[in-house]
Design a protein around this nucleic acid. Sequence first.
DNA 1: AAAGCGGGGGG
DNA 2: CCCCCAGCTTT
Length: 353
Amino acid sequence: MNTRDVASIRRRLLAWFRKNARPLPWRATRDPYRIWISEVMLQQTQVAAVIPYFKRFLKHFPTLPKLAQADEQMVLRLWEGLGYYRRARDLCRAARLLRNNKYRTIPDDPEVVRTLPGFGRYTTNAVLSQAYDRRLPIVEANSRRVLCRLFGIERLPRDAELWQLAESLLPQRSVGDFNQAMMELGALVCTATNPHCESCPIAVHCRGRRMGRQDHIPVRAPSAEVCLVDEVAVIVQRDDRLLIVQRPDAGRWARMWEFPHHVRAPGESVLDSVQRLLTSLGLEGTVGDEIATIRHRVTRFQITMVCVQVHHPRGSAQAGTYANLTWVRPQDLHAYPLSTPQRRLARRLHADD
DNA sequence: AAAGCGGGGGG
DNA sequence: CCCCCAGCTTT
């Protein structure tokens, strides 16, 4: 792309956006706080799903100070159904960090913003370009597709390459609109399947289109295979609930799954109950021998270790399998009522490695 | 650099 | 069923 092409792309895209932009709620403002909330909700989440959540969230927490003093449980409740709940926790953490450092809103400083939890390169640049017209590029699902087709990249693109291309297109002003225009084009015209090249404002500059390869760009990374993994699972019982602590990788406790709806039937053995649980989750696997059982008088927990061999879901192949489960990160275990025996057990098993 | 996080929507 | 979606964090 030479300088003239780039200038033409900027002009055409901005003109197209001003005529065709959807009237989304977060576009009615340049309030950095609102833009921030929208950007976080939109991470890995489609626009249509976000709109009602965004409106409701802003009714409860209209400003940064309100969010900074919010109860995290309340924020999480408002987040229910959006997924990736760490986003909500990070939202609270970042709001409080800003307040504690005497910021009354998101500062116009990428170096500062980038250090806040939940602010990666994309979110930092998206918020600052839209709120303050900072000249910062963005790369996400939509603009990635646009860039790959526009530049005719017929191989797996490298991230650094895409960021560089995105920056090369940025105008001097209206940067926020331009970034949004790239995304809007990807959402409305340069779609993943059946792109509408006939109505694309920059089709004349599109190498992918010129090569007739738009349907084969961008190329996808091969999806990971489902492979067999030997695992050790720990079953924690309390009353009629089960909690499984699983160790997918040797020497590292990666996750803890709670199954609030799984009830061990009267008289049913733990091993049978776990087998039934695996089946009900659609996981193919077999429950092997019981390794050990530990009873905690104080906590009323009984912990059973069993060998479980599971056909382990890799990549996104089994996304959704664990719906309705509560996910707890190991570093968050201290906040969880069942953490003490779990960690004790983790240390014991770890010592055996 | 690669894997994991979650839920919904569409083909 | 599979792919895709306004990514971030950790290893």
